[in-house]
Design a binder for these strands. Sequence first.
DNA 1: CATCTTAATGGTAGCGCTACCCATACAATG
DNA 2: CATTGTATGGGTAGCGCTACCATTAAGATG
Lengths: 346, 346
Amino acid sequence: MDSQEIRSRKRHRGKGRVTLADVARQAGVAPITVSRALNTPGRVSAEVKERVDAAVEALGYVPNLIAGGLAAAGTRVIPVIVPSLAILTFIEVIDAIQKRLEAAGYQMLLATTDWDLDREASLVDTVLGYSPSGVILTGLRHRPRVISRLRDWGRPVVEIMEVGDDPIDMNVGVDGVALGHAMASHLLEQGYRRIAFVGSHLGHDYRAAQRLEGHQRALEEAGAACGGVLEYHEPASYEVGVRALEDVMAMTPRPDAIHCSNDIVASGVLLAASRQGIRIPEELAVGGYLGLPLAEHLTPKLTTLAVARSEMGTQAAELLLERLSGKTPERPIRDLGFTLVKGGST
Amino acid sequence: MDSQEIRSRKRHRGKGRVTLADVARQAGVAPITVSRALNTPGRVSAEVKERVDAAVEALGYVPNLIAGGLAAAGTRVIPVIVPSLAILTFIEVIDAIQKRLEAAGYQMLLATTDWDLDREASLVDTVLGYSPSGVILTGLRHRPRVISRLRDWGRPVVEIMEVGDDPIDMNVGVDGVALGHAMASHLLEQGYRRIAFVGSHLGHDYRAAQRLEGHQRALEEAGAACGGVLEYHEPASYEVGVRALEDVMAMTPRPDAIHCSNDIVASGVLLAASRQGIRIPEELAVGGYLGLPLAEHLTPKLTTLAVARSEMGTQAAELLLERLSGKTPERPIRDLGFTLVKGGST
DNA sequence: CATCTTAATGGTAGCGCTACCCATACAATG
DNA sequence: CATTGTATGGGTAGCGCTACCATTAAGATG
C-alpha cells in the first residue's frame, strides 16, 4: 500500500510518461546510449541503434525536449519577433522562415511587439528564458538592453527586413531609404512633377518612414518641389487608400502622382479610382511597394518595387542554421535589393 | 588555479547566467522563496517581495522557463498547428490567438502541416515534447494516434475552424457544409439556375470540399441541375480565379453563376472580369467566402459569407486559458456561424 | 609484444527550477 | 491555557535529459 502510494505520488509529477530510461531498460542498454542512438546515431553500433529504435516504437516514446534543453542548455526553438501579423509582408517572411526551420527540425516561437520597442525588449527577455538556439528579430532599431544582451548571448541572431553595417550579429534585408529613392526617381523619370507621398502608421513603422526619407531625398536631388505628404495614423489598409485618393483629389494644386508607402494602400487607391472613373495614370499615377500578388491583377497593373520576401525569410533561416551547425557563413550581412515592376499605373 | 578551472568548466554548461539561487543569495532568502515571490506573490510578505524584486532588478535576472517547465511539468507554451500560413484565414485566426495568449503570458509555438495528416501526427508528437500547457489544432480530422494521445494527455486542446459534436476536447468553428449550402441557396434565391462550383486544392483542403458538399446538397434539394464543378489542384490564388473565369466562359452551356470556394479565387474572377469587360452579375454572378477586406473594395462588391475569424481565434484562446485557470468553460463546443454579406456580384 | 588509437558503451553529476513536506511564529478559538 | 489554525519561510528531492570523463575491447603501430 505504502509503496504504491509513493509511486502514485511520483506519477503526479511525471504523469507516467514513457522516459528515456524506460526505453533503455527495454533495449537493454544504458540511458546515455539511448540518448546517443537518437541524437548522434553515428556514435553507436548499428545493432544497438536498431534495438533502441524498436524499443522506442514499442513503448511509443516521445523525447522530452524540455529536459533535453535544460541539460544541453539549448532547446531547438527559434523565436521570431515581428511587429505585427496583420502585415502581409511579415507573413510571407515568417512562412518562409518556418518552412526552412521546420525542415531542419527546429520549431518557431512567434511573438509580436505591436511596433513597441519596449515590448520588444521584454519579449526578448522572455524568449531567452526558453533557452532558444537562436533568435530572429525585425529591424535594426532596438533598445540598448536588447542589443547588449543578445551580443553577450553568444548564439546566432538574425535581424531581418532592414540592412545596415552594424547588426547585432547577422542581417538580411533591404535598404528602406533606397527603396523610397528608387520609386520617387522612377516617378520623376516618367515626367511626373507634383508627387505626393501617402504614408500610414509612419510613427510606428519606421521602415515606412525610411521610404519617405528616400522619397524626399530624391525630390531634393532633382530639384523638384514636394508634392505633399499625407499621413494616416493607422495601419495600412485598402480603406486608407480610398481615403487617400479622396484627399489627394481635393488638394490644390492637385498632385499628378502619388507614392504610397505600400501596396495595400496603393491597391486601395487603384480600386477606388476604378470605381470613381478616375483615369490612371493620366489623371494620377500611383506607385507602391512589395510586389503583392494583387498588384498585377488590378487594372491598370500597379507599378511596384518588388522585394523578395520569401527569399528573405529563407536566407535568414539559413544563416541561422549554418551558424548552428558550426560553420561561419560568408556574407553575414545581406542586402537583397529590389526590382522595379513597371505596371500601367505610372 | 584548480578551483578556477572547475568553475570555468561549470560555466561552459551554465553559461554564467544569473540564476534564481543568485537572486536568493542577494536577497538573503532561500531559492524557493524567490520562486514564490515571482510566481505566487500572494504567498510571501510584502517586505520579502520587495527585497526579491530589488535583487532581480540589480542582477538582471531572467527566469529559465525551461528549468521551470521541467520541474513543474509544463511550460507556458501553446503550440498552434495549422495547415499553411499562405492562407489569409489562418493568419487572422493566428493573430487573434497570439494576441490573447501573449496577454495572458503564454507564448505561441507555430507549426504547419502542409495539409498532411501524417505530418500533423508527427508534429503533435514533437510539440508535446515541449510539455506545452495546451494545444490548438485545425479541423476535426486527425490520425487516430493524435486523437488518442491528446485525449489521454489531460491538458486543454482546442480544435478550430470546423465544428462537430465529438471533438478531442474543446472546439470553436463553423459548419463547412452549412456554409456551402447557404451560398448555393442564396444564388438559387437570386434566380440563378446554372451554378458552377470553383474549388482549389479540394484534395488537401477538406473544409473547402465540405462547402462543395453543401453546395451540391442545396442544388439537389432545389431540384436544380448541377452547373458543373471546376477543380484546380493548387492553392487558392487570384490567378486561379483568372483561369476559372476563362474556363467558365468557355463552357457550353455557360453557367450563369459561380460559387467560389473562397474569396481569393472569387476576387480573381471579379478582377479578371473587370479587365475583360464582362458584366457582373448580368453575365455571371460570383459568390465567395470569408469576408476578406478586399471583397468590399471590388466593383461590384463581392457577395460573400463572412466568418468571424478573429473571434474564432480569440474564443479558442479563451477556452484554453479558462481551462488552464482551473475553470470549466461553459459551451466547450462553439459554432460561430456566418453572415451573408450581399454585394453587387450576385 | 608493449603501446597507442579508435570505437562503443557506461557512470556520474548536474542543468535551474518547483512540488511536496516540514518548521516556526503568532493569532484565534474553546 | 492547551489546541487549532494561518501565515510565512525553508529543506529536500527530484523533473528527464545530456556533458563530461572513464572504461572496455578491438585493431593499428613500431
